[in-house]
């Protein structure tokens, strides 16, 4: 009996803790799956924003060969403008759509003024001067934003219809994220249609490959550059408007985004729009997955990915248009 009892105790001891462990493991696993998929959704929506912004950067880089350092500031202006419009019209659908429509146009207008007024006089200059010029514009725009909106944090809610979450495949997905997941591909397709089907799109692609040739064909290269720059700015503004309801809008939001989009464009292949998509995926998903593994250093993951990509393929994943 003692023997039995011993045995029983032994059994109990061996069975119980392991059972517990298995139970907790299962809980952790389901938790992880949940966390994983919701992080994935967050990462993918971030990817869409990054894609829209970096596609604009890439477009300008491809045609003008200028990495536009002010791109982050333009994105910030887009966010602030969208905030102002939405705040003025209240939390309704009309305000949201109007913001989405107008904010990028405002940014595009800023871009047009900068390009026609200043940048267009510099195209013959050294490459480094052009980079520094866009840096200067970024500095000026940042302070203008500070002047216009102040240094406080601002936030807007998405319209009611996009608030809350939707249950899909047993997963609760915030509606606004779903909206972003849809709008990213729409922009991508739109951009692709623009670049391949419209005349100005075709011309700007040609200008990216061989600008002398376009000049020889009797096309006003200067206006092609202007159009490309404005489109790039528009996309920055659109990204800013779309991101506005998801985070607190504040000065300094340009810094992270400009570094991130720079790197996205670099690993994607300079000027390659599809490369920008892949790069955005690496950044968006990499960071949200990083949150699961090492929360404090999640930001490190995409940067590490960039380093690895650039070491393996020094000129980016896809073909650069240069």
């Amino acid at each position: 009996m003692g023997r039995n009892g011993e045995c029983g105790v032994f059994l109990a001891f061996s069975a119980h803790p392991s059972l517990l462990i298995r139970e907790s493991q299962r809980m952790e696993l389901t938790l992880n799956l949940d966390a994983l998929s919701s992080q994935l959704v967050i990462g993918l929506s971030r990817t869409m924003i990054l894609f829209i912004v970096s596609a604009g950067l890439s477009f300008v880089l491809g045609v003008l060969r200028v990495p536009n350092v002010a791109h982050g500031s333009l994105y910030m202006i887009g966010a602030f403008t969208a905030y102002t419009i939405m705040a003025a019209l209240g939390n309704n659908l009309a305000g949201f759509w109007l913001a989405l429509l107008l904010a990028p146009l405002v940014v595009a207008l800023v871009g047009l003024i900068v390009e026609r007024g200043l940048l267009s006089h510099l195209y013959q200059r050294e490459h480094l001067m052009l980079i520094l010029f866009t840096f200067a514009i970024g500095l000026i725009l940042n302070d203008l934003v500070k002047f216009a909106w102040g240094a406080e944090y601002r936030s807007v809610m998405p319209p009611e219809i996009l608030e809350g979450s939707l249950t899909l495949f047993g997963l609760a997905i915030p509606r606004y994220n779903l909206f972003l997941l849809v709008s990213g591909p729409i922009v991508a397709v739109g951009l692709w249609l623009f670049a391949t089907k419209t005349k100005i799109g075709k011309i700007s692609r040609a200008a990216a490959v061989d600008r002398d040739m376009v000049g020889v064909l009797g096309i006003n290269v200067s206006w092609v550059f202007a159009a490309s720059f404005v489109i790039g700015c528009y996309l920055a503004g659109l990204g800013g408007a779309l991101v506005a309801p998801t985070l607190s809008i504040t000065l300094g939001m340009d810094h992270t985004v400009i570094i991130e989009t720079f790197l996205i464009v670099t690993i994607g292949g300079l000027g390659n729009i599809w490369g920008a998509m892949i790069g955005s995926l690496i950044f968006g998903v990499g960071q949200s997955m990083g949150l699961l593994i090492l929360p404090q250093y999640a930001v490190v993951f995409p940067y590490a990915a960039v380093v690895i990509v650039l070491l393996l393929r020094p000129t980016g994943l896809l073909k650069s248009v240069w």
Binding site: R125, F133, A136, L139
Partner: peptide, 20 residues
Amino acid sequence: TDYWTLVLGVILILLIFFLP
């Protein structure tokens, strides 16, 4: 003024245009 970066930006643009 608090707008130091604005001043820096303007200086930079003037430099690029007139004193490269």
